[in-house]
């Protein structure tokens, strides 16, 4: 899932879906410099990671963002980040105490 986010076009697609709600491939491709086929491939990668899913609206196929995996990704890194803050504070105390 983290790997799915490691591409600028995919991130833009995701941001677009998050901002504008369910969109068709045509709508997603608008303003992008890549082809509709490329967008389709990006959507497949995002769908595999559970970040988007498609919904049928009449004859139209729309794409919708899935929030939970993104939220999880952030929480995961936030937790590691907080651990490093604590650990580096211990290092700071250690080296600064001895220098005095």
């Amino acid at each position: 899932m983290f790997a799915a986010l490691g591409d600028e076009t995919r991130l833009r697609v995701l941001a677009k879906l998050a901002k504008h709600g369910p969109l068709s491939i045509t709508q997603i491709t608008e303003g992008e410099e890549v082809t509709r086929q490329a967008i389709t491939k990006h959507l497949a990668v995002l769908a595999d990671s559970g970040l988007v899913h498609d919904v049928r609206r009449g004859r139209e196929r729309l794409w919708e963002v899935e929030l939970a995996p993104l939220e999880e990704a952030r929480r995961c890194l936030d937790l590691v980040s907080a651990q490093w803050d604590r650990t580096l504070a211990q290092l700071k105390d250690f080296v600064e105490a001895e220098d005095e």
Binding site: G6, E8, L11, L14, A18
Partner: peptide
């Protein structure tokens, strides 16, 4: 919420790494 996170991700460009900086008086 999703927009906020997607935007954050765009700025980070990756969720693969964490980077921390600290100044040590030593």
């Amino acid at each position: 919420a999703a927009t906020q996170y997607a935007t954050t991700e765009l700025h980070m460009t990756t969720t693969d790494r964490i980077e921390k900086q600290i100044h040590l008086a030593a």
